[in-house]
Design a protein around this nucleic acid. Structure first.
Length: 374
RNA sequence: GGAGGAAUAGCGAAGUGGCCAAACGCAGCUGACUGUAAAUCAGUUCCCACAGGGUUCGGUGGUUCAAAUCCGCCUUCCUCCA
């Protein structure tokens, strides 16, 4: 793909973190970056204009969910997902592999693919690596994912090995099935916390020569040190000139550790979901806006934040909106959390360019102090 | 003036002799959330020295081994009749 490639500009001498530009058919974006999730072709509560104003580059959508509603044919007839949702920046679709994990009790996995009992009306549907690519081609995102199995953690070695091999075969099948040449198909590294499986998965995928590589199966409940190892053991065997995408990571510490390992892209529902539930990421730690102590707190959510919410509204007002279940409150809070992570990424990129990402990471942790969360 | 009905925790509302410190809903308080079945879920809300103890069900006096539940009186409220 000529119009999709990673241009690495700098590698941090302190950590190995990478700064670069990802070129996509819908524009260039700087990495490392955080990508908010818009499963149903909308980042819940936020408009494309708001996302732009926040500085969002790539956003996500989901193959499984869009297949169920409204169906990929509708998206295709709308002119593709960019037109359908009025977002002209780069878009990435996840394959539905994560739903194999999150809807596990409604799934049956075989060599051919996965049979789902779909969550909307309970009817059966089958996803195969080929079908998942066909759906994603109709949806029309810039970056698409191979169909994979995201295993739970922990998982027995024998199962993990079987699953990794199958996911590798699925990756190959998806690659063969791909018709469009203007979408970047990523392979997904799995292997749970088994080093040999991660290595094997990464090496085999690299040989298939994908335009980018995802790291899956992390941040599903494993301890932080295990997480870091999983990322390390995946990144180590991936080509250095291709983008690395760590799937489902959005907590501040996991993001920073991932960047330090040389990851370029991250996505997560965390900032938008917890915002809708009243939890906010701030430069001094977690804030639960519904806490009674904020009822007469007329200061901004985060004094160090440049987002629209922090520039214009007080905690007392945001708490009032949250308690009153006003949707505007959820918007303002989502806006803040996404901006917080986007902004954190910007600072991280700056630190990488200045070869002090390690120090930066320490500073961020220190600012959080002993406060728990994220 | 007469007849009937009702009073339960912050609010609404179950419970009509022991399994009741009292269902449930709301409101309040707290926590969780990581490739979105999530504008969701969980815990908690009489008091305390809290695997236990102490005071509760309009007030008061009884009956009973045992009362939010049965009886008398009182207070307040509601409906209907005059």
């Amino acid at each position: 793909m000529e119009n999709f490639y990673l241009e690495i500009k700098h590698i941090c001498k302190q950590t190995g973190a990478r700064y670069g530009i990802l070129h996509t058919p819908h524009g260039d974006v700087e990495v490392p970056m955080f990508m908010p999730v818009g499963t149903l072709a909308t980042v819940k509560t936020l408009s494309p204009e708001e996302l732009k104003s926040i500085g969002t580059g790539v956003i996500l959508a989901n193959t499984y969910h869009l297949h169920l509603r409204p169906g990929e044919d509708i998206v295709a007839r709308a002119g593709g997902i960019h037109k359908f949702m009025n977002y002209d920046g780069p878009i990435l679709t996840d394959s539905g592999g994560f739903q194999v994990f999150s809807l596990m009790d409604k799934c049956k996995i075989s060599e051919e693919g996965v049979t789902f009992r779909n969550h909307l009306d309970g009817s059966k549907l089958e996803f195969t690596p080929e079908k998942v690519i066909a759906i994603q081609e109709k949806i029309g995102a810039d970056i698409i994912m191979s169909f994979d199995e995201c295993m739970p953690y922990p998982v027995e070695y024998s199962y993990a090995k079987k699953s990794v091999e199958r996911t590798l075969r699925w990756a190959k099948r998806g690659q063969v099935a791909q018709i469009r040449s203007d979408q970047a198909l990523f392979g997904i590294v799995q292997g749970s916390d088994y080093e040999d499986l991660r290595k094997h998965s990464a090496i085999e995928l690299s040989e298939m020569d994908f335009p980018g590589y995802s790291i899956g199966g992390t941040s599903i409940g494993e301890p932080k040190d295990v997480y870091v190892k999983m990322v390390q053991q995946s990144v180590a065997y991936l080509p250095s000139d291709k983008p690395r995408y760590l799937m489902g990571v959005g907590s501040i510490d996991f993001l920073l550790e991932g960047i330090a390992q040389g990851v370029d892209m991250f996505d997560c529902v965390l900032p938008t979901r917890i915002a809708r539930h009243g939890a906010l990421m701030t430069s001094v730690g977690r804030v639960n806006i519904r806490n009674a102590k904020y009822k007469d707190d007329f200061t901004p959510l985060d004094a160090n934040c440049d987002c629209y919410t922090c520039q214009n509204y007080t905690k007392a007002y945001l708490r009032h909106l949250y308690i009153s279940e006003e949707t505007f409150g959820k918007r303002l809070l989502s806006l803040h959390n996404v901006r917080f992570l986007v902004s954190l990424m910007g600072k991280a990129r700056q630190a990488i360019k200045e070869d002090r990402f390690g120090d930066f990471k320490t500073e961020v942790y220190r600012a959080f102090g002993s406060k728990k969360g994220f």
